[in-house]
């Protein structure tokens, strides 16, 4: 057993790895590395970049909440308007602190017809969500984030509250992580987009 052949002398045919197997191995390895790289990028930049075009989404509204007499809002239908997308949940305490401000801000723009507020209820339970909306007298269109599809568009690691402002061309212009402190803060973001 203690013989030490440096490089075995070849008794049988010493075949290397066939080229097609080699190619497959490399494809598999690079695929894996590519996947990891992509996930790493995603983990590093989980949030939709500012100035990027927001992919279309459809928000199904709560019963009792409606937009243009419809139970659904599609982002693509809102072209030409500034869209404020606010993510919230009834179990989220900071959300409660900004709820009144959002409502006030929405009312101030309501007559102009140039700004649409959308409340997206993130992984919440129905009764509590309704109680929340009643408590804070929320009247702009609100709906559940069905299957977390909308939140996944904006932020992989979404936490509530978060607010995204989209301009008339459907481009993301502002990201607010955490609650707004005042109505003025909201207006300071929306007004410039309206050219005011």
């Amino acid at each position: 057993m203690s013989q030490e052949p440096n490089r075995n002398t070849a008794p049988l045919q010493k075949r290397g790895v066939p080229p097609w197997v080699q190619i497959m191995i490399w494809i598999g390895l690079l695929g894996l590395l590519g996947l990891l790289a992509a996930m790493l990028l995603k983990a590093k930049n989980p949030i939709l970049a500012i100035h990027s075009t927001v992919p279309n989404f459809t928000l199904t509204l709560f019963s009792g909440s409606e937009y243009n007499n419809a139970q659904q809002v599609r982002l693509s239908d809102l072209a030409g308007k500034v869209v404020v997308v606010n993510f919230w949940a009834s179990w989220c305490q900071p959300c409660a602190s900004e709820a009144a401000d959002l409502e006030t801000a929405w009312r101030s723009y309501q007559d102009s017809g140039q700004v649409v507020f959308l409340g997206v209820d993130y992984v919440d339970t129905g009764p509590e969500a309704h109680a929340y909306m009643t408590e804070f007298n929320v009247n702009y269109p609100n709906g559940p984030d069905m299957g977390t599809r909308i939140s996944q568009i904006f932020n992989r690691n979404l936490g509530v509250p978060e607010t995204y402002v989209i301009d008339q061309q459907g481009i993301l212009r502002s990201i607010q992580i955490g609650p707004f402190q005042s109505v003025a803060e909201i207006k300071a973001i929306v007004d410039p987009l309206l050219g005011r």
Partner: peptide
């Protein structure tokens, strides 16, 4: 809250499959 939601749905007579479907629809797969 979600556990209470399950309790409520059970009280309404929903089956396990229905509850699961509801959860998938609302919160994703």
């Amino acid at each position: 809250q979600w556990r209470e939601l399950i309790r409520q749905m059970l009280a309404e007579g929903k089956t396990e499959a229905e509850i699961k479907r509801y959860f998938v629809d609302y919160y994703g797969a």
